[in-house]
């Protein structure tokens, strides 16, 4: 009896400010398409070159992360939020250190050689 009472009371209801229409998801999808299209336009249309191209399309990739994390992955809601944010920020920081540090050290070595 107690079990059925629990399952009754936890029926899914839109109790967490869920929108009537999934605008957040649609906005996120459109943004991801626009960012991808813009990166392709810059690169394959030869509108930018060299380091300007690299910086621009990397910036668009970072914006795509923001779209996924905030519009799709619900990063900033409910209780564990601060722990979620710190966890994933630490992950991105380590990623940056590993990738940038590797490039720095390895290209430094090749210049010396």
């Amino acid at each position: 009896m107690a079990n059925s009472a629990v399952s009754q009371s936890t029926n899914l209801e839109p109790q967490f400010h869920e929108e009537a229409f999934p605008w957040k998801h649609i906005i996120g999808y459109v943004l991801s398409l626009v960012l991808t299209g813009a990166a392709l336009w810059c690169a394959l249309g030869y509108h930018l070159r060299g380091s300007a191209l690299i910086v621009t399309i990397l910036a668009m990739a970072v914006l795509q992360i923001v779209v996924q994390l905030f519009l799709f992955m619900h990063l900033t809601e409910s209780d564990g939020t601060r722990a979620h944010v710190w966890t994933i920020c630490l992950g991105f920081f380590f990623t940056f250190v590993v990738v940038a540090g590797t490039i720095w050290i390895m290209s430094f070595g090749s210049q010396v050689a």
Partner: peptide, 23 residues
């Protein structure tokens, strides 16, 4: 929360593979 921790560590896997590829 545990799954966010997993994602952070899985990100490390890809970080090393990206670093290797770029070199």
């Amino acid at each position: 929360l545990g799954f966010w921790l997993f994602l952070a560590t899985d990100l490390m896997v890809f970080a090393t593979l990206f670093a290797t590829y770029l070199i």
